[in-house]
Structures are given as C-alpha cells and as structure tokens.
Design a protein around this nucleic acid. Structure first.
Length: 529
RNA sequence: GUCCCCGUCGUCUAGCCUGGCCCAGGACCCCAGAUUUUCAAUCUGGAAACACGGGUUCGAAUCCCGUCGGGGACACCA
C-alpha cells in the first residue's frame, strides 16, 4: 500500500512506535504529539491496514441556480475516496450549506447524484437522507454543535465579542486599501467590556507574534507568521457560524484524521490550526492537492465550458473514463494511462500526487472515453446507450442482443454515447436525405445498372450475414470489372445517406434483408438514368 | 499591495528527495506513412519541453541563491 511506502523503505520501526501503533490508542496518535508526527505521515505498516482514517470531500454548494458538483470538487472527492478506500478508512460526505441563500435541496440532490454516478460511495454515517441517498451530513443540521463550541471559546476567553459595525469595518478596509496597505482587524474589541445586549460577532483571539507551521502531505512545511493573520470571525452578528469555524468543529467532531482539499484552502489552514489549538483539539493531517485550471491557467470555471459532472454524464461520458481522467490530473503511476477504479484504489499513492496546477484537457478525456467505450461489455454498452437514443428521438427495438451488435459497431468511431447516437441514426431509421456532395460522386449514370444488379443478387442471398454479403459484393464487383469501392460506396450512401459508416456488410446485415433492400430500392429513384 | 503555492514538449506527466544511466521517457493533440469498401480503429515514423540568470560540482532538469512568470488567499462568502 499506498501512502505508506516511504515508511517501509525507511526500515523497521523502533519498538516504541510499533507498540504505539498496535495499541488501541493509535487512532488518536496523530493527535498525541509531534513526536509521532513523522510516523503518521505514512500511516500504513507493511500489509497491515489501519482502519481509522476518515476523510471528507468538500461537498460545497455553488451560487449557480442549479448548483452542481463541478470538475474540481469531483476530483477532490475522488482523491479523498481513493485515499480512504486504499487505507481501509472511512469516507464521509458533508454538505457545507451554511450559506442558506445559495443552497437548495435540488442542489444537494445533484451533488449526491453526481457522486454516486462516479461511484464514489460514501460511508453512511450521517443522519441525513432524502429517499435515494442516505447517510450524509449537513452543516445546517449541526448549528447546535457550533453554538456550544462558540460558547465554550467565549467562556474560556479564547474568543471575544466584537461590536464593530460591518459598515465601519468596510470603511476601514477601504481606507487601508487606499493607502495600499493590507487590512487586518486591529483587535480593538479584544478587551472591551461585554455588552450582551448589543449585536456582536465572535472573533478568535490570535497571538500577535510567533508563527504557525502547516505540515502538509503535498507541500511539506509551510510557515505562516501570525502577524499576517487577524482575529477572524467565528460567528457572525446574526448568530450564523462562518465556514472556517464550521469546518474545524465538524472535522473534530466527525473524527476526521485527514483533510484532503484543494490548494485554495492552504492559506486558510493556519487560521484553522489556531482554532484547533484554542479548542484544545488535536489537528488532523492536511493534504492540499493542486487545483484544476482552465486552458488560460486560471481557475476552472463556467466560462471554460461545461464543468458540471452531470453535464459530462449527459453528454455521454462514462463514469469509468471520468474517474480515470480525474485521477490522472495531478497524479501518475509510471507510464500507465488507463486505470480501473480498483486499480486506482490499489495504486493511489500520495507521493505521486503533484504539486502544480493541472489544466483540464477535454481532448484527452474524450480519448479516454473512447477507450472505455471500447472496453465495455456489449450488452452493458447497449444498456447505457439506450437513454441517448431516446434523447436523439430514435426508437430502439427491445432486442438487447441486436442493440449490442449495433452498439459495438457504432462505438468504433465515436467518442461519447451521444456521438454514437448521432452517428448511428441509420440503424434505426432510413436516411432522410442523401449527402449532396456524395451524390455527385457516387450516384452517377453508371451507378444505376450496378445497383440494380446488386439488388437482384441480394434478394436471393442466403444466409444474410456479413460474410455472405461481402462475398456477393466482391464477386459482383469482379464481374462488373469495377473496384469494390465503386459498389460499396453507392450502397453505403443508399443505406446511410452518408459516405461514412462501419463496414457496409455489417450495416446491411444488422438492418436485415427487408429494410436493406427497401433502402437500396429507394435509392435507385435518386440515381440518374 | 501583502502573504502563500507553483514553474519539464501546446496539454497531462516520468525523472528531481538519494546529481552522471536524460543531447530528457510515456500519453493526449498535431503531421506523415502502412493497412483498408468509406470513416474510424490499429501499426510505424515525425515535430515538440528542463522559465531565465548566477553559483556549487569533474558533472545539474536534479542541490543553493536571485529574477521573471502563473495561480491562490487576504470578507460578519464558502
């Protein structure tokens, strides 16, 4: 395994550490003291798996009207899931919806749907459920927990009430900006007498001097000077807890050992660590994974095109390909490009996670999707294809075996399920028109007698198989003294309306004698005399 | 602006920790050829990168310093 290989290479454990690891206490060892910190960075010993790891994805909600799990969030979820599954730990889901105005049940449902489409099953430890999906957490259901923690911090003097009106703070911030100075709250309310009757925000008291070191699995030690930080707000004056506060309280109470999240959270981390300390809680192990970028190397967003996972699903991408691609963004395993979910769980290692941002490359995703399309069992492929046929307004016969053959032929030249449906219309309905350019080239005066003879031969052909069809075509071509292509292309145009399709013999065979002959006959009317 | 992170082909990356096997390997994309009933697939070949400048060293993509560039964070948003 996985995140532990470095430790293995470092040779045998010292007896004390070994004892600790095998004791029931080890769950809390990451928190016990820095002495064991190096040990916990590589939490697995040989084949022994430790079952105490818990990670959480950032099931965040977004301001768009629909709300959705986007590519970056999905990748974070995937890394959490891979780590948890590989380490034999738990993977929990928490919806961070403290901003109520932005979050809707519909948005939450879409996130759950996207996650399960990818196959990232979370451990159902949470109390929430909505019929289909169960066992997740929601921050808005945990307000009582945040309140209790806030009160404790206040009582212990670790936090204090701030009575500065938001407008005044805003004004001061602008002033500072005008002077081109960084604005930080000056702590003027730190020692103010309590006025429980006035509205107040709760701020965390942060030491003026010193520094906080973040131990990050990806970046190593990152140092932040306290002078850079200010007494940040834990609870707003309207009583609502802030995101950074909730996250810390949640991670502690949910016993999260590994916080794996996007790099954009790295600068929040020292603030959070200070809160862990104020609360008297051990800190988890952090891993800040690189972000996913758009082609302009900026943060990936809507203006770069589709970023919603469900949009990719609707476009006909396979979850297998999506997972595979997302895993390879920022992570690698030698020269291997294609991974099954199982392979990923087995091979995912934190030390092969890169530290630089990665540009989302749709072309490579499409290539991978084509690859996965090709690997899918034909019957399974057909089943997944059906919804896309319906969406394209095509009526597919019930016969799964027949559809599987069609799907197998159609997948050869398509990158997505949707493309398969678009390109394969002629399996389900006759051509509405013939490609004009192709007509000029292949429906000529010479075509007519050739097609007519072909039809006569095919009427008597037995059996109606690709092999027999090919034999007939070849023989006729020879008799006529023309090349096979001179027979194949007119036939293809007659049957599909285009000059592009899988091998024409296979297409004819799949259509069946009656339909094939009908289309060829109809084409004769379009050929000049 | 301040702080933090990052910097190998156009893109994803291997190599960097533990300098020489790297005039830098793989994959996507692109180009050419082979194959072929069309297109695709496939196969073969090709173009394509160590951001820059110093230093250390017999030797640097690899170690050190600086510069430049990109990104992120700086809210009573999450």
């Amino acid at each position: 395994m996985i995140w532990g290989d470095q430790l293995i290479r470092r040779g045998p454990l010292r007896p004390l550490k070994r004892l600790l690891l095998h004791s029931p206490l080890f769950v809390w060892a990451p928190f016990a003291s820095n002495v064991y910190h190096d040990l916990l960075w590589y939490p697995t010993i040989g084949r022994r798996r430790i079952r105490a790891f818990r990670t959480t994805p950032w099931g965040r909600l977004f301001p768009s009207p629909t709300g959705h799990l986007h590519v970056g969030g999905a990748r974070t979820a995937l890394f959490n899931w891979l780590f948890a599954r590989g380490a034999g730990g738990a993977f929990l889901l928490r919806i961070e919806d403290t901003d109520r105005s932005r979050s809707t049940d519909e948005a939450i449902r879409q996130i759950l749907e996207a996650l399960s489409w990818l196959g990232l099953e979370w451990d159902p430890e949470g109390p929430e459920e909505d019929g289909t999906y169960r066992g997740y957490f929601r921050q808005t259901s945990r307000l009582e927990i945040y309140r209790a923690h806030a009160e404790r911090l206040l009582a212990e003097g670790k936090a204090y009430r701030c009575y500065c009106p938001p407008e005044e703070l805003e004004a001061r911030r602008r002033e500072a900006q005008a002077r081109r100075e960084p604005f930080r709250y000056d702590g003027r309310c730190r020692d103010r007498a309590d006025r429980p009757d006035l509205p107040a925000a709760l701020r965390l008291r942060i030491p003026d001097t010193g520094r906080t070191v973040v131990h990050d699995l990806i970046h190593g030690e990152v140092v932040f000077e306290h002078a850079q930080l200010d007494d940040w707000i834990l609870v707003r004056s309207d009583g609502g807890p802030t995101y950074n506060f909730c996250v810390v309280v949640d991670d502690v109470t949910m016993k999260i050992t590994h916080v794996i999240r996007g790099n954009d959270h790295l600068s929040n981390t020292p603030k959070q660590i200070l809160l862990y300390e104020a609360l008297g809680y051990p800190r988890p192990i952090f891993a800040h994974i690189p972000m996913i970028l758009g082609p302009d190397r900026g943060r990936l967003s809507k203006r770069h095109g589709a970023t919603s996972l469900l949009a990719f699903r609707d476009e006909g991408f396979l979850p297998e390909a999506m997972v595979n691609y997302l895993a390879r963004l920022g992570w690698s395993h030698g020269n291997q490009e294609v991974f099954t979910r199982e392979e990923l769980v087995e091979r995912f290692t934190r030390n092969q996670v890169g530290s630089a941002g990665a540009v989302f490359d749709r072309a490579k995703l499409e290539w991978l999707n084509g690859h996965w399309l090709g690997r899918l069992d034909p019957l399974e492929l057909a089943a997944r294809w059906r919804p896309f046929l319906e969406q394209a307004g095509l009526r597919a016969p019930d016969d799964p075996a027949w559809l599987a053959r069609v799907a197998t032929a159609a997948r050869e030249r398509a990158k997505t399920l949707r493309e398969m449906a678009e390109q394969g219309r002629y399996y389900f309905e006759g051509p509405a028109r013939y490609d004009p350019e192709a007509v000029g080239r292949w429906f000529t005066r010479e075509t007519r007698p050739r097609l007519a003879r072909l039809v006569r031969r095919l009427e008597a052909l037995e059996p109606w198989t690709p092999e027999a069809l090919e034999g007939t075509f070849r023989q006729l071509a020879q008799e006529l003294g023309v090349k096979l292509v001179d027979l194949a292309q007119p036939a293809r145009l007659a049957v599909t309306g285009t000059t592009v399709s899988p091998p024409i013999f296979e297409v004819l065979a799949l259509l069946g004698r009656a339909e094939a002959l009908a289309r060829l006959g109809r084409a004769l009317d379009a050929v000049p005399r």
